[in-house]
């Protein structure tokens, strides 16, 4: 190491250290920059893509879009979704497969979004709710289709 390089090393080192201290010093002097959200007092700002839990959307006539095709059940990597189907008889006398119960195990779900991607009719989607704690594990097993709900007209 030549003396020139030695001094250059020192100068570069001091300069880089001061650059770091300048940034942290700026943050220290500017409490406005603090990004902490005080959660129980203020609601957190969630991104649109935040995945809280799987829900099935129903419209005002209590109709959902799920045909009971089990594509989501097959897509699920860890058996979170279990779909029970039934046969409905249409007015013309034709038998047709339909959704009976959509069982969703929140305690197994990893929020991977594969079921939503797999759904051909956009029946299920991810909700923003993240406060899932309950006192009994059984409460985490949910039935997603509301009682008495029917398949929406025109969804095949």
């Amino acid at each position: 190491m030549t003396p020139g390089e030695y001094i250059k090393n020192i100068v570069n080192g001091v300069k880089s250290l001061l650059t770091g201290m300048k940034l942290t010093g700026y943050y220290f002097m500017h409490p406005k920059e603090i990004i902490t959200e005080q959660y129980p007092e203020t609601r957190p700002v969630l991104s649109e893509r935040f995945r809280g839990e799987v829900v099935m959307s129903h419209d005002e006539k209590n109709e959902h879009r799920c045909t009971g095709c089990t594509a989501c059940e097959l897509a699920c990597p860890n058996g979170t979704i279990k779909i029970i189907t039934k046969f409905e008889t249409s007015p013309e006398g034709k038998k047709k497969k339909a959704l009976d119960t959509f069982i969703y195990h929140l305690e197994l779900c990893t929020m991977c979004n594969l079921c939503i991607v797999a759904c051909p009719t956009d029946a299920i989607k991810m909700a923003q709710n993240f406060e899932h704690s309950v006192y009994d594990r059984n409460q985490l097993t949910k039935v997603l289709n509301k009682p008495g709900s029917k398949l929406m007209e025109g969804v095949e």
């Binding site: 942290t24 943050y27 220290f28 920059e33 603090i34 990004i35 902490t36 005080q38």
Partner: peptide, 9 residues
């Protein structure tokens, strides 16, 4: 000090 430097409370 640590918190304020790391943009925390």
């Amino acid at each position: 000090v640590a918190a304020h430097i790391q943009i925390r409370l």
